[in-house]
Amino acid sequence: MNGFLSALGQKLAERWLSLLVLPGALFLTTATTARVLGQAHALDLGCLTDRITHWARSPVATTVGGQVVLIGAVLSAAAAAGLAAQGLGTLIQRTALAADWHAWPPPLQRWAGAVVRRRRTRWTAAVHRYQQQLSTDARSLARTGSRPDPVPRRAAHLARQRIAAEEPARPTWSGDRIHAAAVRLERDHHLDVAVLWPSLWLTLPETPRAEITAAEQALNRAAALGGWALLYAPLTAWWWPAGPLAASLALTSRYRFRSAVDAYAQLLEAAVRLHATDVAAQLGMDHSGPPDPVLGDALNHCLGFRAPSPPASGGASSD
Results as ranks from 00 to 15, higher is better:
7 A>I: 07
10 Q>K: 04
30 T>L: 11
35 R>C: 09
37 L>R: 02
41 H>R: 10
42 A>N: 07
42 A>F: 10
43 L>R: 07
44 D>Q: 05
45 L>M: 12
59 P>E: 13
59 P>R: 12
68 V>F: 08
69 V>Y: 10
70 L>K: 13
75 L>C: 13
76 S>F: 12
80 A>N: 00
83 L>Y: 07
84 A>K: 08
85 A>V: 01
90 T>P: 06
91 L>G: 07
95 T>D: 11
100 D>P: 14
100 D>C: 07
101 W>I: 02
102 H>R: 08
104 W>D: 07
104 W>M: 05
108 L>P: 15
111 W>Y: 08
113 G>S: 06
113 G>V: 04
116 V>F: 00
117 R>Y: 12
118 R>G: 15
118 R>E: 11
127 V>E: 11
127 V>T: 14
129 R>K: 10
138 A>G: 11
148 P>Y: 05
154 R>F: 12
155 A>N: 11
159 A>E: 08
167 E>Q: 14
168 P>S: 01
172 T>L: 03
172 T>E: 02
173 W>M: 07
174 S>C: 13
175 G>L: 01
183 V>S: 03
185 L>S: 00
186 E>G: 05
187 R>C: 03
189 H>A: 01
194 A>L: 11
197 W>E: 04
200 L>W: 01
205 P>L: 12
206 E>L: 04
206 E>G: 00
212 I>R: 02
212 I>G: 01
212 I>M: 05
215 A>G: 09
216 E>C: 09
220 N>T: 03
221 R>H: 11
222 A>Y: 06
222 A>H: 05
224 A>Q: 10
225 L>D: 02
228 W>G: 00
237 A>G: 12
242 A>C: 08
244 P>Y: 06
244 P>V: 09
251 L>I: 09
253 S>K: 09
254 R>L: 08
257 F>I: 01
259 S>V: 08
259 S>L: 06
260 A>I: 02
261 V>L: 02
262 D>V: 03
265 A>I: 00
267 L>K: 02
267 L>H: 05
277 T>S: 09
278 D>E: 14
283 L>F: 05
285 M>R: 13
289 G>K: 09
291 P>Q: 15
292 D>H: 13
296 G>M: 07
299 L>I: 13
305 F>V: 14
310 P>K: 07
311 P>Q: 11
312 A>F: 13
315 G>S: 11
315 G>N: 10
315 G>F: 13
